[in-house]
Design a protein around this nucleic acid. Structure first.
Lengths: 239, 239
DNA sequence: GAGTGGTCTAGACCACATC
DNA sequence: ATGTGGTCTAGACCACTCT
């Protein structure tokens, strides 16, 4: 549908399957434009996606080069984790995952939650607590709030499997962006129980607010990770 | 110099000083284009910067809106922290910071460091260990490696103050991107000493590889934070 | 239907790297 | 000097939202 995304997908594929290998110079812009029948600006948009994913580096005056690419560390590349909600980095795709739904209810939002979700205080929201295990080792405790007005008819079945799949595939909604804050926090009995932490041990918390393409906030969540199970990769491109 | 950055800076300023306030609709694209004497694509580039910074949300068919903006949490906005190397989020700008240089030497790179910096094994690199304190409370322990071939004549004075200022202002080099990995690690005596951690307490590590605009890697660093002093903010825009 | 953003193009011109 | 990427423009056309 969108040309520059298709082009990026194609070139990413070539890097993964090592048609383009580490350190190699990519054909320069003009050649790529001819190959993909597109304009220079469109090509730049495509390549900028790969720059943000950390797969290539572009050097004005020199060329475009494939970056050091470690296939065991390819979380950006897994379609299943496009929103950074699944397993990240080193643990992805290799282990058996089990989810345990600790809580699934509808509650009126309190001040904090209504502020984060930008809804009226007291509006009803789904309240989900879910523990995830990796080969039976506790991995993450997820606390999720979603307005019932935005995500309709969420069922236990969806919560047990993938909430994101339900939102995208069944409701046909598109997810636009997520705003995350990662902090360290001291564990309380809740995390000690589900993450098998000792007293005084900290956990990683990822606080997240997620937007649909319509601009509506559909989720406020707190993902709490055992500190030795957590990994997050980011690329920052300065301007 | 670059028009879309200037425009983004100007609009960001207006959001910070609350000329545009929370929830408000910005003038639409055409009006902004006329105001700033620019083309639609240029305007989009400018606004996309603010989208990535989490300051605005754009909704096709509806308009562009100022997001919930908490002035106490404006780390994206501080010029001094453009590269995510200074203090982040809640602690920035309010406290007195002191740096203690624990180590400043030149060593031959070992296999791991040479791989990260993409230089030949054995090439000489600066080796810096720096402890930073916030109102005398240990905050972060920084372990930095930089090739002497890229960063020439680094002095203790630069290390005590800002290495980035030296690179940008004195050497006139431009920083292009940084690739970061956040993990939790168990502390060793080094971190226990400088971060005042107990045995068995973990620390939060940000491993970073940084590129110049020339595409050359100039830095491999490990920033080790006390877990209750750690905060990292990211905005992910899906496509 | 009117309002508003998103994508794409052709082509001009600029900035930086390498030789 | 030549190769290569980056920015900017004018204008066409498409996609989504609101009412």
């Amino acid at each position: 549908m969108v040309k520059y995304i298709d082009i990026a997908d194609d070139i990413r594929e070539k890097i993964i399957e090592q048609t383009y290998t580490y350190g190699q110079k990519l054909p320069y812009e003009y050649v790529l434009c001819v190959t993909y029948h597109c304009n220079k600006e469109t090509m730049k948009k495509a390549l900028d996606i790969l720059v943000k994913e950390g797969l290539i580096v572009r050097r004005r005056g020199a060329g475009t080069f494939v970056k050091d690419y470690d296939p065991s560390n390819d979380d950006v590349l897994k379609k299943g984790d496009r929103y950074g909600v699944g397993l990240t980095g080193k643990y992805q795709g290799f282990y058996r995952i089990r989810s345990e739904v600790v809580e699934f209810s509808v509650i009126p939002s309190d001040l904090e939650i209504s502020k984060k979700l930008q809804i009226e205080e007291g509006s009803f929201v789904y309240h989900v607590i879910r523990a995830r295990y990796l080969e039976e080792i506790p991995y993450v405790l997820e606390i999720i709030y979603m307005p019932i007005s935005v995500i309709a008819n969420l069922r236990l079945e969806n919560v047990s499997n993938s909430i994101y799949a339900y939102i995208e595939d069944e409701l046909g909604l598109k997810i636009q962006s997520s705003h995350k804050t990662i902090t360290g926090e001291l564990s309380t009995p809740l995390e000690q129980q589900y993450l098998e932490l000792s007293e005084k041990e900290p956990f990683f918390q990822v606080e997240k607010v997620s937007y649909l393409s319509s601009g509506v906030i559909f989720e406020y969540s707190l993902n709490r990770y055992h500190y030795n199970q957590f990994e997050e990769n980011t690329v920052t491109v300065h301007y």
